[in-house]
Structures are given as structure tokens and as C-alpha cells.
């Protein structure tokens, strides 16, 4: 079975990194993975998105028009990509920055004040990890413990940040259950 996750938001929100960590965890779990970035004349503050494809067999097309899941970190991303999400997928939206909803009644809409949680924890920069943890806790797309390991590995060169990121993981998980 193949599942696709699109991460979308502003450049600088850690969108590409969230996707990379998920891809890494999925690789550790033994899946085939592909991480496909949007690349273009992008700039800081512009839009950024990436798609992670996770499959139990060799991945064909890396061009994904309709992802199964969407993690939307800002309003333009939600407006642009919510309509293309497959039925029965998950749409996680960062309600700290998005005052609207997806308008889809055939998906699992997960509303998380991602940035507010991250600020409470001490750094808005942890927003992407809060969102990633909430999404994985809800979708169970990869093992949560493997995801934690992938986060630790990603921050191996900045060990001071690991306790914060682990806290972000837990808060994200709780938000998905609540």
C-alpha cells in the first residue's frame, strides 16, 4: 500500500525538514520512501511544500497530484491543497495561523494550535515537530518511537535542542488524542 503526505507552509517553518524526518523514520521501519520537494524560484517567507511517499513496494510516479494526507502550516497552503486531498485522508491544520477550516467533510480534520504549543514550550521553531508528532500520532503512518529516534538523529549536531524537541513530540501526540 502506498501513502502520500504533503507538508505545506511558509518557507522557514521547517516544512522540508518535517518531511525529511518522516521519510527517515519510514526508511528505518523498512518502507520504500521518496521525498519530493517543491523547488522553484523560492525565497524565505514564500510558500514551501514537499511530499513524502511511503510504500511497501517500489515507488512509481514521484509526481503526486492527490496526496492522502496534508499537514497545512499556513492559510494559503490549506486553501490551495485541501481540495486535492484524497477522501478518508487526514488534514492537519495549524489553527494558530489558520482561522478557517478545510471545508471537507470526507476527511479526518485535525485542528492543532501548533505555533501556540511551540511558543509555550519556549520556541516557535519547534512548530514543525509539534505538527509532525500530532500527524503521526493520529495517522500511525510510522512507529512513533522510530519517529522520535529520527528527530534525535536529525538534531544530533544540536544536542541542546533535543529535550525541547522531545517535549514538542509529546505535546503533539497529546494534541492528536485530545
Amino acid at each position: 500500500m502506498q501513502r502520500e503526505v504533503m507538508f505545506a507552509g511558509f518557507g522557514g517553518q521547517g516544512i522540508l525538514l518535517s518531511g525529511k524526518i518522516l521519510a527517515h523514520a519510514a526508511l528505518e521501519e523498512g518502507f520504500e520512501v521518496a521525498w519530493i520537494p517543491s523547488y522553484g524560484p523560492e525565497m524565505r517567507g514564500g510558500t514551501a511544500y514537499c511530499t513524502v511517499v511511503i510504500s511497501d513496494k517500489s515507488i512509481g510516479s514521484p509526481i503526486i497530484k492527490n496526496p492522502l494526507h496534508l499537514v497545512a502550516m499556513n492559510r494559503p497552503s490549506l486553501e490551495k491543497f485541501a481540495p486535492v486531498v484524497k477522501p478518508n485522508g487526514i488534514i492537519l491544520l495549524n489553527s494558530s495561523l489558520i482561522p478557517i477550516r478545510s471545508g471537507r467533510d470526507d476527511v479526518d480534520e485535525l485542528v492543532v494550535p501548533v505555533a501556540d504549543i511551540a511558543i509555550e514550550l519556549g520556541s516557535i521553531k519547534a512548530s514543525n515537530i509539534v505538527a509532525l508528532a500530532a500527524f503521526v500520532a493520529r495517522s500511525k503512518i510510522v512507529d512513533f518511537e522510530l519517529l522520535k529516534e529520527a528527530v534525535k538523529e536529525e538534531f544530533a549536531k544540536k544536542p541542546k535542542l533535543i529535550p525541547l524537541e522531545m517535549e514538542a513530540m509529546e505535546r503533539g501526540r497529546k494534541a492528536a488524542q485530545g
Partner: peptide, 10 residues
């Protein structure tokens, strides 16, 4: 092509 260059895979 650009995708081969930009994509991450194992």
C-alpha cells in the same frame, strides 16, 4: 532531470 536531482530516496 530536475526531479532526479532534487528528490531524496534511500
Amino acid at each position: 532531470d530536475g526531479l532526479i536531482g532534487q528528490m531524496m530516496e534511500p
